[in-house]
Amino acid sequence: MQSELGFITKLFLISLGGAIAIKYIAPHLPISASTGGVLVSVFLPSVAMAMILGWRAQQAKAR
């Protein structure tokens, strides 16, 4: 139970940090509104997660 609470707390804090960064820091970044920027911002998290999960799956098969 203690480890689950710790995990949920860490996840909440990371999400809170990301939300604060998006709300207060992102508007000050010089990012132009272009198709390429939108595609990168939409697909990068999914592609990164797929790569991480694929790497973990390969590591699990090796064991």
Rank of each mutant, 00 (worst) to 15 (best):
F7Y: 15
A33E: 13
A62F: 00
S34D: 11
L53I: 06
P27Q: 08
A33W: 14
I52M: 01
L11R: 01
A21T: 03
L13T: 00
V47M: 01
R63K: 15
A19S: 14
A48V: 11
F7R: 15
G18K: 05
P45C: 02
L13F: 08
K10Y: 13
S46K: 13
Q2S: 13
I14S: 08
A50M: 09
L16V: 03
P45D: 08
A26N: 02
P45V: 00
G17F: 01
P30R: 04
A19L: 14
M1K: 15
M49Y: 04
I25Q: 06
F12D: 10
S15F: 07
G18H: 07
V47S: 05
M51Y: 12
S15M: 14
A57D: 12
S34G: 07
A19E: 11
Q2P: 01
A62N: 06
S15Q: 06
L53M: 09
A21F: 00
I31R: 00
P30K: 10
M51C: 13
K61M: 11
Q58L: 12
T9E: 13
G36E: 06
A21R: 07
L5F: 12
V47Y: 00
T9R: 14
P45I: 05
F7I: 15
I22V: 08
G37P: 00
L39W: 07
S34F: 00
T35F: 13
I8G: 11
G36I: 04
M49K: 09
S46G: 12
A57W: 08
G54K: 03
A26G: 00
F12K: 09
A26T: 08
W55I: 12
T35E: 15
P45N: 06
L39C: 07
G18M: 03
P45G: 03
R63P: 01
S41H: 06
Q58V: 12
A19N: 14
G54V: 10
F43P: 07
K10R: 13
H28F: 15
P45S: 10
L39I: 02
Q58S: 12
L39N: 09
W55R: 12
V42H: 04
Q58M: 11
